[in-house]
Lab assay of single mutants.
Amino acid sequence: MTTFKLIINGKTLKGEITIEAVDAAEKEKIFKQYANDNGIDGEWTYDDATKTFTVTE
């Protein structure tokens, strides 16, 4: 398992979430669903070196 981080830079929601997953593709799906469930629609980036997804509205 690898630890992945999501950084949220939303208009109404900001924060960080850290979760373990098998791979980045699995985690991306979970993070995007979390963002969608919380009304966050923005630009996504991924840094493989730090295993960090960022979504910015």
Rank of each mutant, 00 (worst) to 15 (best):
M1I: 12
M1K: 11
M1L: 11
M1W: 09
T2P: 05
T2A: 09
T2I: 14
T2D: 08
T3Q: 07
T3S: 10
T3Y: 10
T3P: 03
T3F: 14
F4C: 14
F4T: 02
F4P: 02
F4V: 06
K5Q: 07
K5D: 09
L6F: 13
L6D: 03
L6I: 14
L6A: 01
I7M: 03
I7R: 02
I7E: 01
I7Y: 07
I7W: 03
I8V: 11
I8T: 00
I8E: 01
I8G: 00
I8N: 00
N9E: 05
N9W: 11
N9K: 07
N9V: 14
G10S: 08
G10V: 13
G10L: 15
G10W: 14
G10H: 05
G10A: 04
K11G: 13
K11P: 11
K11C: 15
T12R: 04
T12N: 11
T12C: 15
T12H: 12
T12E: 12
T12F: 14
L13M: 12
L13A: 06
L13C: 15
K14M: 12
K14G: 09
K14V: 14
K14A: 12
K14F: 12
K14W: 15
K14D: 11
G15N: 09
G15Y: 15
G15S: 10
G15L: 15
E16G: 07
E16T: 07
E16F: 11
E16I: 14
E16W: 11
E16S: 06
E16H: 04
I17S: 01
I17M: 08
I17F: 12
I17Y: 12
T18W: 14
T18A: 05
I19R: 01
I19C: 15
I19F: 15
I19K: 01
I19V: 07
E20D: 08
E20V: 14
E20A: 09
E20I: 14
A21S: 11
A21T: 11
A21M: 14
V22L: 11
V22A: 10
V22M: 10
V22S: 11
V22W: 12
V22Q: 09
D23N: 10
D23P: 06
D23Y: 07
D23W: 12
D23A: 05
D23L: 04
D23R: 05
A24H: 12
A24S: 13
A24Q: 13
A25S: 10
A25M: 08
A25T: 08
A25W: 10
A25D: 11
E26V: 06
E26S: 08
E26I: 07
K27F: 15
K27L: 15
K27T: 15
K27E: 09
E28M: 14
E28F: 14
E28P: 03
E28H: 11
E28N: 04
K29Q: 07
K29E: 12
K29A: 12
K29P: 03
I30R: 01
I30S: 03
I30C: 12
F31C: 12
F31Q: 01
F31L: 10
K32A: 11
K32W: 10
K32R: 11
K32H: 08
K32N: 06
K32V: 06
K32S: 05
K32G: 04
Q33K: 14
Q33I: 05
Q33T: 05
Q33W: 05
Q33H: 04
Y34H: 02
Y34P: 01
Y34T: 01
A35N: 03
A35P: 01
A35C: 14
A35F: 13
A35M: 14
A35E: 02
N36F: 13
N36T: 11
N36A: 14
D37T: 09
D37C: 13
D37N: 06
D37I: 08
D37E: 11
D37G: 03
D37M: 09
N38P: 03
N38A: 11
N38W: 14
N38I: 14
N38F: 13
N38D: 01
G39P: 02
G39D: 05
G39C: 12
G39R: 05
G39L: 06
G39E: 05
G39K: 03
I40P: 00
I40S: 01
I40M: 03
I40W: 09
I40L: 08
I40T: 03
I40C: 12
I40G: 01
D41F: 13
D41S: 11
G42W: 15
G42K: 03
G42L: 08
G42D: 03
G42Y: 13
G42N: 01
E43N: 07
E43T: 10
W44M: 04
W44Q: 01
W44K: 00
W44F: 04
W44A: 01
T45H: 08
T45A: 07
T45G: 03
T45N: 05
T45Q: 07
Y46A: 01
Y46K: 00
Y46G: 00
Y46E: 00
Y46P: 00
D47C: 09
D47A: 02
D47M: 01
D47W: 02
D47P: 00
D47V: 01
D48K: 04
D48F: 04
D48H: 06
D48R: 02
A49R: 06
A49C: 13
A49F: 06
A49M: 08
T50P: 00
T50W: 01
T50D: 01
T50S: 06
T50V: 02
T50E: 03
K51Q: 08
K51I: 08
K51R: 11
K51G: 06
K51H: 12
K51Y: 07
T52A: 02
T52Y: 02
T52I: 05
T52V: 03
T52G: 03
F53E: 01
F53G: 01
F53M: 04
F53N: 02
F53Q: 00
F53H: 01
F53P: 03
F53W: 07
T54C: 12
T54Y: 10
T54H: 09
T54I: 08
T54M: 07
T54A: 02
V55D: 02
V55F: 12
V55W: 13
V55R: 05
T56P: 01
T56A: 05
T56Y: 09
E57R: 11
E57V: 15
E57G: 07
E57H: 08
E57T: 11
E57Y: 12
E57A: 09
